[in-house]
Design a protein around this nucleic acid. Structure first.
Lengths: 180, 180
DNA sequence: TAGTATTTATTGATCTATAAATAAAAAGGA
DNA sequence: TCCTTTTTATTTATAGATCAATAAATACTA
């Protein structure tokens, strides 16, 4: 497939991808639909052919990102005692491969748009319930508390990444294989 | 002091207070200088007589809020074994009495303005170092890790409050004195 | 009257969203 | 195959709204 064909294969997917990067870096308000269009190489009004508003575009991006997180937590496998660790690693891997989307999810609760808040509330609840339920299945005591701490850990990792404060990363100071 | 005198006693302080509430509720971008002015009862351009830009106003509000948090963590006193708990309570008290400012601090790292990011980085670092240092003085093992978890707890509390997800509050399910 | 507090008027920039126009591609019939 | 019609992809032009910020004018107070 030629680059040109590749490019025009699925404009909607291209827009979603570019928007994810831009929203993650510059947030909902500071990212303009013109920025997204420019990144893809189309004109600004054309974005509205695929998404009826900037808000709908943002929500679509956010939804994709939450799906990735849920999938990672659903598929992480390990013997019961090591489950939290394995899920933590799944999160760290996702952060490495899809940094934009992960940080977007972890920051979106601070976006004061009703529709965004609603989605964050619903999806964060789902993530929490999923983590708790997997911890329960693994026979981990105080699964609710552990799930809470697990999410807290995710938040502080995102904070550390966003503000460039490596001190706050849980793996700070420790070295592992392939540590840079 | 008459209401009129009271009102005009310190316009700058009034503006800071109104701005704190508005910024906390609606964030940096969605809060306009006209909103702040209206809340105080002055005209929009007059805000610029006290703060040379909207950004400077926001930074001033943010600074006040960080000061309150630092003060609370500095002054919390307890026997060494109970220090983390006492500092957690100090945070919870602050959240109850100055909800706006606390939530503002915990969400501001998601505001993609260079000056805001810089302040958050510097101040979050200060808070972390202070907590860690107090934990060390109290002879708590792995003070760095405990300080990290402490901040993570604060983040998840703020998330739970912002998104209205009481499940995620550490004190969820437990009852204490005067629990509502 | 001097000085301080505050307002009116306004500019210029930015951004989402709509509507109409055009170009390109695909389909259909002779 | 060549011409015509229809559909799809994309652009140009622009409306309409909002906002931060400046400058000049005015009201208030001592």
């Amino acid at each position: 497939m030629s680059p040109k064909e590749e490019e025009s294969k699925n404009r909607k997917a291209e827009i979603l991808e570019a928007a994810a990067a831009l929203f993650a870096e510059s947030g909902y308000y500071k990212t303009t639909t013109a920025d997204v269009a420019r990144a893809v190489g189309v004109t600004q009004p054309y974005v509205f052919h695929f998404f009826k508003s900037k808000e709908q575009l943002y929500l679509a991006v956010l939804d994709n990102a939450y799906e990735k997180i849920l999938h990672a937590f659903n598929t992480a496998e390990a013997p019961p005692e090591q489950l939290p660790e394995a899920m933590g690693k799944a999160f760290a891997d996702l952060l490495a491969t899809h940094r934009n989307e992960i940080l977007l999810v972890m920051m979106s609760y601070a976006t004061p748009e009703d529709a965004v808040r609603q989605k964050c509330q619903e999806r964060f609840d789902t993530v929490y319930e999923r983590v708790k339920s997997r911890f329960e299945q693994a026979g981990i005591p105080d699964a609710a508390g552990r799930a809470r701490d697990f999410i807290g850990q995710g938040m502080i990792i995102s904070l550390a990444e966003t503000l460039n404060l490596p001190k706050l990363l849980p793996w700070h100071g420790k070295l592992g294989p392939d540590c840079d």
